[in-house]
Computed example of a mutant assay.
Amino acid sequence: IDYDPNRSSWIALVRWLQAMKQPKAANSQTEEKAKRFLGQGAKLIRAAGIFAQIIKKFENTPQCIVRLPSDVDKLIDSRYQATVGIVSNLHHGKRKLDKAGQSRWLGRCPIVRGVAMNPVDHPHGGGEGRTKG
């Protein structure tokens, strides 16, 4: 397990010793679609500390309903490969930033309200006293 500065989760090198057999598709159209997307790598649920749940698996078709972290239910192909568990680094969003510089190190810039600006800088700026804009 190693730290990667380019992502929010920890990474590890895993080797699968036994190859898994993919079930055969029901017809040629779904097989062509599966060949396009199977084996491409992670597309969903990649941030640190989040997970998805399988809500329903259908018997006759190779599809299942997955609940994403945003509480949206999505219909996906059940032949896709998945990693079991939660993406590592659960405390990623819970770190306390002690000063403004730590926020700047993460690439976050300060946000200034338009009302606090001068009239040349923003349409809501200027005026003698506070205005609604």
Rank of each mutant, 00 (worst) to 15 (best):
H124Y: 06
V66T: 03
M117Q: 15
I45E: 01
Q18V: 11
E128R: 10
G49E: 01
K99M: 07
F37L: 12
A19M: 09
R7W: 00
G129W: 02
K57Q: 14
D121W: 06
S8Q: 01
D4R: 05
R79M: 06
C109H: 08
H124C: 10
N6T: 11
S78N: 14
L13H: 08
P69N: 08
D98K: 15
V112M: 10
G125S: 04
Q53K: 15
F51A: 14
I1W: 07
Y3E: 06
Q40C: 12
P23A: 05
K21T: 15
Q102R: 04
C109S: 12
L97Y: 12
R130I: 10
K99G: 07
A19S: 12
Q53I: 15
I111K: 10
H91F: 06
G133L: 03
A12Y: 03
L13K: 11
W105Q: 14
S28T: 06
R36H: 07
Q18T: 11
K74H: 09
T61H: 05
R104S: 12
R7L: 04
G114V: 05
N118Y: 08
F58H: 13
G126D: 00
A19R: 13
D77V: 00
A47S: 14
G125M: 01
G85Q: 08
T61S: 09
E31K: 11
I54G: 02
R104C: 05
H91D: 15
K94F: 10
T131P: 00
I50E: 09
T83S: 07
G126H: 03
F37S: 12
S70W: 04
Q29L: 12
W16C: 13
K94I: 00
L75C: 12
S88Q: 05
N89L: 03
P110M: 03
V120S: 13
A82K: 02
R36N: 09
A48Q: 01
E128V: 07
T30Q: 14
V72L: 10
T83E: 09
F58I: 07
R130Y: 06
S70L: 05
S88N: 09
G41C: 07
A26G: 03
Q102F: 08
G93H: 05
Q63E: 14
Y3T: 06
V84F: 13
A34K: 00
